[in-house]
Design a protein around this nucleic acid. Structure first.
Lengths: 353, 353
DNA sequence: TTGTATGCGTTATCAT
DNA sequence: ATGATAACGCATACAA
């Protein structure tokens, strides 16, 4: 059986509450007894029973994290940040993978609610109404999703997209395609809006929205042929995974990157320096997102009355690599073999593919 | 304030213990009262306080998982498996990232011990003695590490390596280099042993051990030039990350894969179908490793007296992709520009690099 | 500064 | 089949 505070008290020759105090508020106990208690506690290998402590304090010192897919490097990085910051603050984190299933998310939150002090949801798919309701039942912070009612950690998509566009324009690109993510995704809408805003500011820049695709490698593979047919000299992908898919399919099709088409991703995943060619990407400080979300939860926990910083914005950086290059004179002519797609249509598709 | 069993009891007009029973052993309570209790409980949104339950049962229904690095896709996959199987069994999992620091591992286990029913350590770096000691303090299962005293989930390296070697030999390769992982790593020793065993069985096959490298992309980059200098026509990397590094550096050096050198990785990470060229890899069923480890922990928990299946072995598969090809007549001559390394030395290096 | 006593919400034991 | 009651191990208000 484990050693309890009572055991320590008996051995140290003090009362049980002195043991408790020695650990919780050392300054409230006489130096001599403090040392004696601490020594015997250590000697006996005493570890407070956290269930009992939690029963009294109502706090578990556990944080919850819900992500759609642990194997997706995007969420892996965020998870790393959450875990690391939580530990620094003396918390541990329970992780839960929703398997990309929005309907599971709500159930997961409710299950975890009682076990944790607060929760972080990363890129939740569940509808706004559900999220808001959930936030009423427990301390909740959202990552990478907008909400009026719930505190969020967001990334300034406009700034990131602007970096990418400025880069592409500097290389001479004027016809730029966008391979979107899920149409319901907040990030996708934010990025599309940003692209439109930036493109609208330059009269000679044409934006071709190729519609919505799965936010994985498979989505990029599916979109690649449309990109080629569109006649664009550069393409911005919803995220790096999609960009990997583009790269892969372009290679299969014999389309050279960046000579024929330049490719830009979003997220700057750890892998993106290693693709062939290496991928230029708009980077999100994912680990920091995780850290920031924990800071927000803890702040909410400690100052429940404060209605202060409900949104924490992080900024992008641009990692320029080998997948973007100057537009070549041959590129558009060589590729635009499908006339019907080069008629200047700004929105080719607007449905999910 | 949250609603307690006492509240439900009062509203339902029964005693508090009937409420408890209704949830724990429905068959022990009369159908009429059962329905009444369950209805009011649901109506009031009653959720048992897990801290209180844990205090009396001594069980938290939490499992712990310690990995060296969450961002490493190897561990991400294992984590996915652990989490998924744990949830199926009604457990949640606390995850902890040791930041590749062996000295942290022991501390993490001890911290988590009191919070969880059992733990899984994935590829721990800590010395045997420490691991054994830890296993004495809590229910512990190891993944990807050998131990006499502690239950483990392992992979049959000999079988996996044999698959790779048979594949390479069928392509005509006779001089095969191995880029090893950390010399202290059990996996590395197991793989090196397996390579030696298989090579020894074929008189015409030469194995060149290039020594130990970091088990990351950087390790592969560091090893690539040695591989080229060794004159080998094929190289087996400690894992896929190392293989990525080899691929990257080979490309930089203008060495064609697989025309000049064939490359084989180990792990078959999700990304490995997307490198250029795509990577032939000996695949570990990582998600299943995670699942199996949870099964072992739960079995240990439920039948603490059984001393049965202490080791669970999983098998490899070989994912043949574009990084391996038939040996070309030019390959050895074209590359072996460093005579001192082509003298047939079987063990070039045996120190860490 | 230290000890005593109470209660956190649940399960388990026993009596009814 | 159900109810009363005693733990579980700790923190805390209060007494000394």
């Amino acid at each position: 059986m484990a050693v309890s505070a009572r055991d320590v008290a008996r051995v140290a020759g003090v009362s049980i509450s002195t043991v408790s105090r020695a650990l919780a508020r050392p300054e409230d106990v006489a130096p001599a007894t403090l040392e004696k208690v601490l020594d015997t506690a250590r000697g006996m290998g005493y570890r407070p029973n956290l269930a009992a402590r939690g029963l009294i304090t109502g706090r578990t010192r556990i944080l919850g994290l819900i992500v759609p897919d642990l194997e997706n490097p995007f969420f892996a990085s965020v998870t790393k940040g959450v875990q690391s910051r939580a530990r620094d603050a003396g918390y541990v984190v329970i992780i839960s993978d929703s398997d990309e299933d929005p309907s599971q998310e709500a159930e997961l939150v409710r299950d975890l609610c009682k076990r944790v002090d607060g929760m972080v949801m990363c890129s939740p798919r569940a509808p706004d109404s559900v999220i808001t309701e959930l936030a009423g039942e427990c301390t909740l912070v959202l990552i990478n999703r907008q909400s009026r009612d719930v505190p969020t950690v967001q990334i300034d998509n406009l700034e990131g997209i602007r970096l990418a566009m400025v880069h592409l324009r500097a290389l001479g690109h004027r016809t730029i395609a966008y391979v979107g993510g899920p149409s319901t995704s907040w990030s996708n809408m934010a990025r599309l809006d940003a692209l439109r805003t930036v493109a609208a500011q330059r009269a000679d820049t044409e934006l071709i929205n190729l519609g919505s695709f799965q936010p994985y490698v498979s989505g990029g593979v599916a979109a690649a042929d449309l990109v080629i047919a569109s006649g664009a000299t550069a393409v911005v992908a919803y995220n790096d995974l999609v960009a990997y898919g583009l790269l892969d399919r372009f290679r299969q099709r014999g389309v050279a990157v960046p000579d024929d088409i330049s490719v830009v991703g979003v997220d700057d995943l750890p892998m993106s320096g290693l693709t062939t060619p290496s991928l230029t990407s708009v980077g999100i400080p994912l680990v920091n997102c995780g850290r920031a979300s924990v800071d927000m939860v803890l702040s909410l926990l400690e100052h429940p009355t404060w209605p202060p910083v409900h949104h924490h914005d992080l900024s992008f950086h641009l990692a320029v690599r080998a997948s973007t290059g100057v537009v070549s004179p041959t590129s558009t002519s060589a590729l635009s073999r499908v006339p019907s797609n080069t008629d200047g249509t700004k929105e080719l598709l607007d449905t999910d593919v």
